[in-house]
């Protein structure tokens, strides 16, 4: 029970100290707005295309909001040594890292639903399969948060966390099937697409919104969950190796 007290307080502290800060709230609102506007203008189509844009905007909003926030906050705490205080406390490393990533996951979920709420004013969303849509959003948020954690453990400076995040994020954006269908990518890039977690998340979102998924949705969700486990286990391994020397 005492471990859960620590868990919820770490989570609440992060939400209060980082994610509910006005600059982050405005980032969380502006970023999806900007993406939606950009896609909408680029498509040159009418309001009927809003549904077609939704999966992409949702996926990017989660990815960009979550990875950078977690990578930056953890690196910042590591740098000013307040993270040491968490490592000294009698909470298991697994639960501690889940608490640290929890805030970013919530932030990612909130970011995801900004474009959904906007879309609800522009078009009819009743055709969306909400169950699989929500599962995809949740797993993308978890995978992105764990990717942020993985990045945070690999770097020592806050600016490195930002740069390193982009190293992962931009290839993912272009290769996950959002801008170009995977089938139209050069043959040598296709295997790379399938090595990225966002590809599977985007596929479930496409399936949930317009039934245009290219793989079975259950398979997408299983693979995405596998990525989450892999990224979390890899991060824990690196923390034990690099931070508890």
């Amino acid at each position: 029970m005492s471990q859960w007290t620590a868990f919820f307080n770490i989570l609440a502290k992060d939400v209060h100290a980082y994610y509910l800060k006005p600059p982050n709230i405005s980032w969380g609102l502006l970023f999806p707005l900007a993406w939606t506007g950009m896609f909408f203008i680029k498509s040159g189509q009418g309001l009927e295309d809003v549904l077609g844009l939704l999966p992409g905007v949702v996926a990017l909003s989660i990815l960009f909001g979550t990875t950078s926030m977690l990578a930056v906050t953890v690196t910042f705490e590591k740098k000013n040594r307040s993270f040491e205080r968490l490592l000294l406390s009698p909470i298991s490393l697994e639960l501690l890292m889940l608490a640290k990533t929890g805030g970013a996951i919530i932030f990612g979920l909130a970011n995801a639903f900004v474009p959904v709420i906007m879309a609800s004013f522009l078009t009819d969303l009743s055709s969306i399969a909400w169950g699989s849509f929500f599962m995809a959003v949740l797993l993308i948020a978890i995978a992105s948060a764990f990717l942020g954690l993985f990045i945070a453990v690999a770097v020592s400076e806050v600016f490195e966390a930002q740069t390193f995040s982009n190293f992962f994020r931009f290839p993912m954006v272009f290769l996950c099937g959002l801008f170009f269908p995977i089938a139209k990518l050069p043959v040598f890039l296709r295997p790379l697409s399938y090595a990225l977690p966002l590809t599977y998340g985007v596929d479930v979102l496409h399936g949930s919104v317009q039934s245009t998924n290219i793989m079975p949705m259950y398979l997408d969700l299983v693979v995405l969950a596998g990525f989450c486990i892999l990224l979390f286990a890899g991060s824990l391994h690196n923390i034990k190796r690099k931070w508890i020397m």
Partner: peptide, 29 residues
């Protein structure tokens, strides 16, 4: 209890919040 060689509390939290947070890490109600 550990007091490190450099103060490592949270700069963005108040003194009271820092102490309450540290106590919560040890499961205090």
């Amino acid at each position: 209890g550990v007091v490190p060689d450099e103060s490592n509390l949270y700069p963005e939290l108040s003194g009271l919040e820092n102490l309450c947070f540290c106590a919560a890490l040890y499961g205090m109600k």
